[in-house]
Simulated assay, not measured.
Amino acid sequence: MARCRRSGSSHVIHKNLVSLFRGNGTFEVLGQGTITIIDPVKLTHTNHPEAAENSPRSLHHLMVHVLRRGDRYNYKQRLVLC
């Protein structure tokens, strides 16, 4: 894997996928593949507390982001950055 010359700390997720965390509360996806962010901040309903171990879950208004190389995300503000 090539060395990255950007400032920040990197986290290897898979041999071809890295996230570069910056000190400002953001990260950028590097390499191949995708990172999936599941954000429950706007979740309005779930049956998880009363659901049996192998039963289906109900999740209303769950936010999901799928990020690819070059995409950035602010994890403090929970925003995808263009």
Rank of each mutant, 00 (worst) to 15 (best):
I13T: 05
S55Q: 11
Q77T: 15
N16L: 09
V66N: 14
R57Y: 09
I37P: 00
D39Q: 10
N74T: 08
L81I: 15
H65T: 07
V64P: 01
E53L: 14
E50T: 12
L59D: 04
A51R: 11
L20S: 00
R57V: 08
S55M: 09
T44H: 05
P49E: 13
H45I: 06
H60V: 10
G70I: 06
P56W: 02
L43H: 02
G25V: 09
G8I: 05
Y73K: 02
R22F: 04
H61S: 15
Q77A: 14
V66R: 13
T44F: 08
K42Y: 06
T34L: 06
V18I: 09
V18A: 00
R5D: 09
R3F: 03
M63W: 06
L67C: 07
H11Y: 12
N24M: 08
V66C: 15
R5M: 10
E28S: 04
K15Q: 12
V18R: 00
R3L: 09
Q77Y: 06
H45R: 12
S19V: 00
Q32L: 07
E28L: 00
L20G: 00
I13V: 14
T46H: 05
E53S: 11
T44I: 08
S19K: 01
T26I: 05
V18L: 02
L62T: 02
V12A: 08
G31A: 06
G33W: 01
M1C: 05
R6S: 12
S7E: 15
G23N: 13
R57Q: 09
I38D: 07
V64W: 03
P56M: 04
G25F: 06
A52C: 07
M63A: 12
L62W: 03
L81P: 02
L59S: 04
K76G: 10
S9K: 09
T26N: 04
V41I: 15
V12K: 05
A52D: 09
F21N: 07
V41P: 03
F27L: 05
K76R: 14
L43A: 03
E53K: 09
Y75H: 13
A51M: 10
M63T: 15
V18C: 03
R68K: 15
N47S: 13
A51W: 06
P40W: 12
Q77H: 11
V64T: 14
E28W: 01
G33E: 03
V64C: 11
V64S: 06
V18G: 01
R72K: 12
V12S: 04
Y73T: 02
G8A: 14
N24T: 12
H45V: 07
H11Q: 11
K15A: 08
R69P: 03
Y73Q: 02
Q77P: 06
T36A: 15
I13P: 01
L59A: 06
V29E: 00
I13C: 05
E50W: 03
L20C: 02
C4Q: 03
R78A: 13
R68I: 06
A2E: 10
S10Y: 02
G25I: 05
H60K: 07
G23A: 14
S58H: 10
L59N: 03
N54T: 07
L30F: 01
S58W: 02
P49I: 10
R5A: 08
E28N: 04
Q77W: 04
H65E: 13
L30Q: 01
H61I: 10
E53F: 13
S55I: 03
K76M: 13
V41C: 14
A52R: 08
V66Y: 05
G8W: 03
I35F: 08
V41R: 15
